[in-house]
């Protein structure tokens, strides 16, 4: 309860700044229109106009709110104009990519921790892979996969995977190495096999690290899925909405897709956070 007041204060401040920025950024267009029609613009009329333009530079919060309402609650989910439909398209690529990325990340981390050669050789490549701008590599992945006959969900998921495996590798390598020397020695005194050591000590010890990585990986995954929708001229998905919006100067549509993406990311990360809390508490690690 104590946290409600500060949170509301911050939200109110954001809205205030947003509305003011909308006036400032959209005023030029409002004056333009007024001059052309030879009208004199009062303060009230100016503010009213900047908050209700059809293609504003910066739409006001309520415009975005109305757009989101219209395209979610008011539309059938199957409709091509439903934001829920587009979100689902992006979400499915995100989740698939996240699952693939997590799997790849954990597999690489296990390899790095258990295999000296991989330890020496893989990490530099993993880091190099992330220094390439995703916007540069995304079209290539899509084109190459299309050429071998893979299209639709999978290419987008691959880009999500490309972004999300990285935090998982880094976190899991650290996590799998987190047992201290005494714990490892202890296992040695019992003559534990490497696989017993992994399942009974290294993996459970790595859980706090895994969950932290998963949160970052999930957010990266969503970015990947959206970016993956941009270069293909995809017709569906939040990325497609962003792209279509920018072609036609539909800023309200862009912003509502952006907000939707943010809400989606927040919800996904929150779910992982919840899993983290429950799991770690049950494991006595929180």
């Amino acid at each position: 309860m104590r946290s409600v007041v500060p949170v509301l204060t911050v939200v109110a401040a954001i809205f205030a700044i947003w509305y003011l920025a909308a006036i400032w950024l959209n005023a030029a267009w409002a004056y333009d229109k007024a001059t052309r029609s030879g009208e004199e613009l009062g303060v009230v009329a100016l503010v009213a106009d900047t908050w209700s333009q059809e293609k504003p530079k910066l739409p006001a919060p309520h415009q975005v709110g109305v757009e989101i309402w219209d395209t979610t609650v008011e539309k059938k989910i199957t409709s091509k104009r439903s934001l829920i439909y587009h979100s689902w398209i992006t979400l499915s690529a995100t989740l698939l990519g996240f699952a693939l990325g997590t799997g790849l990340g954990i597999a690489l981390a296990v390899g790095i921790v258990y295999n000296r050669t991989m330890d020496m050789s893989v990490m530099p490549w993993v880091i190099a892979s992330q220094t390439i701008p995703i916007l540069a590599i995304a079209p290539m992945i899509i084109v190459v996969l299309n050429a071998v006959g893979i299209s639709g969900l999978l290419p987008k998921a691959m880009i999500s995977m490309y972004l999300s495996f990285f935090p998982v590798v880094v976190g899991m390598v650290k996590g799998l190495r987190s047992p201290d020397a005494m714990q490892l020695d202890q296992m040695r005194t019992w003559n534990a096999s490497p696989s017993q050591m992994f399942w009974r000590l290294r993996l459970p010890s790595s859980m706090p690290y895994l969950f932290t990585s998963l949160k970052i990986g999930m957010a990266a995954s969503l970015v990947g899925a959206i970016v993956g929708e941009l270069p293909t001229g995809a017709v569906a998905g939040l990325g497609a909405r962003l792209l279509a919006g920018s072609y036609y100067g539909q800023t309200i549509q862009i912003w509502s897709a952006l907000i939707m993406a943010a809400v989606l990311a927040a919800a996904l990360v929150a779910i992982i956070g919840l899993l983290q809390r429950v799991t770690l508490r049950r494991m006595g690690m929180a």
């Binding site: 005494m182 020695d185 202890q186 005194t189 019992w190 003559n191 459970p204 494991m283 006595g284 690690m285």
Partner: peptide, 19 residues
């Protein structure tokens, strides 16, 4: 001896697994 589990070793810290 270690491989035949001939001894038990008690470390200074209890080192129990919290989970």
């Amino acid at each position: 001896a270690r491989k035949s589990r001939a001894y038990g070793y008690v470390f200074q810290a209890a080192g129990l697994y919290p989970w």
